[in-house]
């Protein structure tokens, strides 16, 4: 469960990216964070993944208040979060499989178990046959699916994605979104930031948190 209460985020220089934002997202829920460019979507996702901290207010993720979280506890919080970025942040000096193995190396999983689990994640996103391929040789959609495989290989309880379909063609975007639906169906909380929430899951009842100049609109 995620509970945000009166969250404000002010950057040095005075820019107020979020103003008194309060919300609740239940465990296993899927939510979209919508809004125009500069509305504060990415800032909210950065706060949820503890990349940045709120200036004031409280933000509780998986029972931990991120405002008071010790820096040493951050890595352990992030191990329960799956992060998917618009630019994927893949490592191009290693293969697709090695990219997915990285989170498992970090938690110290035995190499054999790690290999098995990483291959299962690649299979889930349809990239098992490309495990030895360098990400640079993958298409945009495949790179995004690889990023999702890396995000979910640790079996996170929350999956956060920032504009995951922004640079993809329609078919690739559909494949990526289907993956989010699949993970949500197994009770993973999915939060996706997008500038066009209405087009993402047509025909599906998905909750949308709309931000406008840093405030949540009803």
């Amino acid at each position: 469960m995620i509970v945000g209460s009166q969250i404000c985020k002010r950057y040095p220089g005075g820019l107020e990216a979020l103003k008194n934002v309060s919300f609740e997202i239940a465990g296993g829920e899927m939510a979209l964070v919508g809004g125009h460019s500069g509305a504060g979507k990415t800032t909210l996702l950065k706060l949820l993944s503890a990349i940045e901290r709120p200036t004031s207010g409280s933000l509780i993720v998986n029972g931990q208040n991120l405002v008071a979280l010790r820096p040493a506890a951050l890595p352990f919080l992030r191990r329960n979060l799956g992060l998917v970025f618009q630019d994927q942040k893949l490592l191009f000096d290693r293969s697709a499989l090695e990219n997915v193995l990285l989170p498992l190396e970090i938690i110290g999983l035995a190499p054999r178990d790690a290999q098995r689990r990483a291959r299962a994640a690649l299979d889930k996103v349809g990239l098992l046959t490309r495990e030895k391929t360098n990400p640079i040789a993958l298409s945009g959609g495949e790179q995004q699916r690889l990023a999702i495989a890396r995000a979910v290989v640790n079996r996170p309880t929350i999956l956060l994605a920032d504009e995951p379909t922004a640079n993809l063609d329609e078919e690739s975007a559909r494949q990526v979104l289907d993956l989010f639906i699949a993970f949500n169906q197994v009770r993973v909380t999915v939060i996706i930031a997008t500038h066009a929430p209405q087009n993402l899951f047509p025909g599906m009842a998905v909750r949308v948190l709309t931000l406008n100049h840093g405030t949540l609109t009803p």
């Binding site: 040493a72 890595p75 992030r78 191990r79 942040k89 000096d93 990285l102 970090i106 640790n154």
Partner: peptide
């Protein structure tokens, strides 16, 4: 630097 940033984002400790 890029690898360090990614590792941090997916839960690597400073020691790792």
């Amino acid at each position: 630097a890029e690898e360090i940033e990614v590792a941090r984002l997916i839960g690597a400790t400073d020691a790792f």
